[in-house]
């Protein structure tokens, strides 16, 4: 059981894909215009990660090392396409917001990175929780960025007005430059917290 907690903590904090590994920057910057979009993208990626990690861990003794990258990509692309169709059929509102970016999960370095660095060397069970941990870490980070951008850039949180009426939304934060500014500031914050922890 400690292995499970360990994998989850690893994904959420120690090796957080966004704030520590700086992977998957394309969706991180592009879809985090609101908390819901960020978390939705994160959860879609989580689903792909869990699926691909399990399958790749299962096939780790079958896939020859020379063709492993194309094999991984085929597996990942299959899961992405599945998610794409399922979202379109059953959660159309989320599909509307993320539609364009879902195919991009295929090339998200987090997914391929975990396949190569973890799932291809570890047991199915651990790989499942590694995928879950990494995915939740990704969803958490995207949610944070999305929430900050939504609150200050649109005065809303999860779609509800939270800022008082006199608050004038800082529109730039929901535009492309705002993604970089918020990401940079959150990087700084996380590094600050980590350095405090390291000293303590």
């Amino acid at each position: 059981m400690s292995g499970v907690m360990n994998r989850l903590k690893n994904g959420l904090v120690t090796e957080n894909p966004v704030f520590v590994q700086v992977l998957g920057m394309c969706p991180t910057l592009a879809v985090t215009t609101s908390a819901v979009n960020g978390i939705g993208m994160g959860l879609a990626t989580t689903a792909v990660l869990i699926g691909s990690n399990i399958v790749i861990s299962m096939l780790k003794n079958i896939i020859p090392s020379k063709v492993r990258i194309p094999a991984y990509i085929v597996v990942i692309a299959t899961f992405v396409t599945l998610i794409d169709m399922l979202l379109q059929a059953y959660i159309p509102s989320l599909y509307d917001a993320l539609g364009l970016f879902i195919p991009l999960i295929v090339v998200n370095c987090v997914v391929l990175g975990r396949a190569e660095a973890y799932a291809s060397k570890n047991s199915i069970f651990n790989s499942l929780f590694d995928g879950l941990g990494m995915g939740l870490g990704f969803a958490f980070s995207l949610g944070c960025i999305g929430l900050v951008r939504e609150v200050f850039g649109a005065g809303k949180a999860f779609g509800f007005q939270v800022m008082p009426n006199f608050f004038e939304p800082i529109t730039i934060l929901v535009l492309a430059p705002g993604a970089f500014i918020v990401l940079g500031l959150l990087f700084a914050l996380f590094n600050y917290i980590n350095s405090k922890k390291a000293k303590a």
């Binding site: 063709v67 194309p70 692309a77 299959t78």
Partner: peptide
Amino acid sequence: NALILFAITLVSSVLLAIAFQVT
């Protein structure tokens, strides 16, 4: 190697075809 890769792509295509039918 080619055969293994082919098998993987074959399984994926079958899965996707089924999912497509369903959705």
